[in-house]
Lab assay of single mutants.
Amino acid sequence: DLSALRVEEVQNVINAMQKILECPICLELIKEPVSTKCDHIFCKFCMLKLLNQKKGPSQCPLCKNDITKRSLQESTRFSQLVEELLKIICAFQLDTGLEYANSYNFAKKENNSPEHLKDEVSIIQSMGYRNRAKRLLQSEPENPSLQETSLSVQLSNLGTVRTLRTKQRIQPQRTSVYIELGSDSSEDTVNKATYCSVGDQELLQITPQGTRDEISLDSAKKAACEFSETDVTNTEHHQPSNNDLNTTEKRAAERHPEKYQGSSVSNLHVEPCGTNTHASSLQHENSSLLLTKDRMNVEKAEF
């Protein structure tokens, strides 16, 4: 173990290094160091905050020279020094078990990766560091076993998940096959086929009936047209017969005018059967003409 005197000496050296690497504005270890034209180094955030307070150039807090945003430059070497100082402080805390008085939040800088452990060898070769390295080497064999167990647990979990997924996939297939086998029997399929065939026959029977009705309507229309044509021909046949009657009536009127007047009046009210309204109107006109002729003949006879 380190003596108290040596611990104090190391602590004083760390404090001196820390004062050199402090920012003059925030009085902390410089984060993202930036250098000016006057070779003074500050935190990048502190300098941008200072420049944004005034429009135009501002003055350096140490030498009062003008500073602009374009004049600022990043210093990589200074950032490396800060990183190495942080590593020294971490090693000091691990070796002594004491917390550094002016320690900052170094938890963000710590890294437990194997590459980081290899890099620590180049920091300080001390008894405390050696003991700590031995402890780490002793704890390393235990870690692979834990990793193997965790991997086995994960693989077993994956296997159970896969088996569950396969079961879920197989179950719908089985149910679907069961439904297909038990849903419709052979008799049901035959009945469905016969039902479809009967429906098709009914459709075939319905369509000819409609065509037959249309044919019957067409035949009825044709018969009505033929009947009207026969009526017209009958009226045409009746007209010459009426003319013959008129000639006979004229002759009778010349011989017996008194008797014919009474008979002509009675004939006005008689309509021949089986004739249309057109034929009756023609008869009325003929009878009126005959009456006028008879009157003329009677007057001539009187004179």
Rank of each mutant, 00 (worst) to 15 (best):
L164C: 13
Q125L: 09
R295L: 01
R212M: 04
D294M: 13
D200M: 00
D294A: 14
N267V: 11
R295Y: 06
L85Q: 15
S126Y: 15
C26L: 15
P57L: 07
T149D: 12
E249K: 07
A252I: 14
K64R: 07
E9V: 07
M47A: 00
E271N: 03
P57I: 08
S71T: 12
L164H: 13
F42M: 09
H256R: 06
S3L: 09
S288G: 13
L268K: 13
I14A: 12
R165D: 03
P57T: 09
C38T: 15
L217P: 12
P240V: 14
R135E: 11
Q53I: 10
S280C: 12
I89K: 03
N12R: 06
L62Y: 05
E229C: 01
Q138L: 05
I20R: 04
S156M: 03
T233V: 02
A223R: 02
E8N: 06
D66S: 04
K69Y: 04
R162Y: 09
N112S: 13
K167Y: 00
E254Y: 00
R132Q: 10
N157G: 06
L136F: 04
E148A: 06
D200I: 00
I89D: 04
P208T: 01
Q59P: 14
K19S: 05
L136R: 08
C273S: 07
I20L: 06
K222T: 01
M296P: 13
L2I: 07
T247N: 02
L217H: 09
Q261S: 05
I170K: 09
E254P: 06
T36W: 02
I20N: 07
L217W: 14
E285G: 05
K167L: 13
Q205E: 00
R165F: 02
N143W: 04
G56Y: 02
G262K: 11
Q53F: 03
E229G: 01
C63E: 10
A133S: 05
I25N: 03
L29Y: 02
S35N: 10
D95A: 15
S3I: 02
S35L: 10
S156N: 05
K37I: 02
Q209R: 08
S150K: 08
N105W: 03
K54F: 04
R6S: 07
I170Y: 00
D39M: 10
G159L: 04
G159F: 01
E187K: 09
C63W: 12
D119F: 11
R6K: 09
C63A: 15
Q73D: 12
G97S: 12
S150P: 12
D231V: 03
V34K: 10
G159I: 10
K49W: 07
Q73P: 13
S71L: 14
K293W: 10
E148D: 11
G262N: 12
A252G: 15
A91R: 15
I89M: 14
L151A: 11
D66R: 10
D244W: 13
F42D: 14
D200Y: 03
R295G: 15
T68Q: 04
I88L: 01
K55I: 04
R295C: 04
E140K: 11
N157Y: 10
N234F: 02
K31F: 12
I88A: 10
S266E: 14
T248H: 03
S126G: 11
G182E: 10
S152R: 09
A253F: 14
D39Q: 08
D213G: 14
H116N: 01
C26I: 15
L48M: 03
I123F: 07
V121C: 05
N267R: 02
D213L: 00
E214Y: 00
A252R: 00
R132D: 01
K64G: 06
L85H: 05
F45S: 10
L146E: 07
Q59I: 08
G199I: 00
E8C: 02
A16Q: 12
C46V: 15
K259C: 09
I206A: 11
S280Y: 14
P33Q: 13
E9P: 10
Q154G: 13
L86F: 09
D218G: 14
I88V: 06
D66Y: 03
L117N: 05
F78G: 02
T36P: 00
N131S: 12
K250Y: 05
L27I: 03
L204N: 06
E32I: 09
L164D: 08
Q11S: 11
Q80K: 08
N15F: 04
E226T: 00
E28N: 10
E226I: 02
I67L: 08
K108Y: 06
Q59T: 04
R255N: 12
T275Q: 05
H278N: 10
A224V: 08
Q168C: 12
S3A: 10
E9K: 13
N243Q: 14
L204K: 11
S3F: 03
N191E: 14
R174I: 00
L86A: 06
E22W: 03
V190D: 11
E28K: 12
Q80N: 15
T149S: 05
E32L: 09
D218S: 07
Q261H: 02
S197G: 12
A4G: 09
E271M: 08
C60V: 15
V153Y: 10
E9M: 12
P24V: 14
S152T: 01
L94V: 09
I88Q: 01
N131L: 08
P144C: 05
D213Y: 00
K55H: 05
E8A: 07
N191F: 00
D119N: 05
L136V: 11
L151S: 11
C225L: 09
Q201G: 14
H256L: 06
D231N: 07
H278W: 00
K134L: 02
Q93A: 13
P141D: 12
M17V: 08
I170L: 14
Q147I: 02
L50P: 08
L245K: 06
E74V: 03
T194Y: 02
S264W: 03
P141I: 04
S156F: 05
S139F: 04
P257E: 06
H269R: 08
Q93H: 13
E142I: 05
N276I: 02
R165H: 01
T160K: 06
I89G: 08
R135A: 02
V270G: 09
L62P: 04
M127H: 05
E99T: 07
I41D: 12
D184Y: 04
E226S: 12
R212K: 08
E254G: 06
P144Q: 05
D231Y: 00
E271A: 09
S3Q: 07
K300N: 07
K69V: 00
L21P: 15
T163I: 00
V232L: 02
S186L: 02
L29D: 11
K109H: 00
R174Y: 01
Q201N: 03
E258K: 03
R135I: 00
T163Y: 05
N15Y: 09
I170W: 02
V153M: 08
N267G: 09
A133P: 07
R169Y: 01
L282P: 08
P272H: 03
C46R: 15
S228V: 01
S183T: 00
T277G: 03
P61A: 12
D218C: 03
K49L: 03
Q209L: 01
L21T: 06
L146F: 01
C90A: 04
N112T: 09
E258C: 01
Y104E: 05
I215N: 13
E249C: 09
A193L: 02
S122N: 10
L85V: 13
R169S: 14
K49H: 06
E83Y: 13
E32G: 10
T247Y: 01
N65A: 12
S266M: 00
Q80V: 06
I41Q: 09
H284Y: 02
K44W: 03
G182V: 09
P61M: 04
K49A: 03
K55M: 05
L203H: 11
R6Y: 04
L48Y: 03
L268Q: 02
T163R: 09
T76G: 11
K55F: 06
P257D: 07
S79V: 08
S71Y: 10
E285D: 06
E74K: 13
F42Q: 15
L62Q: 11
C90Y: 06
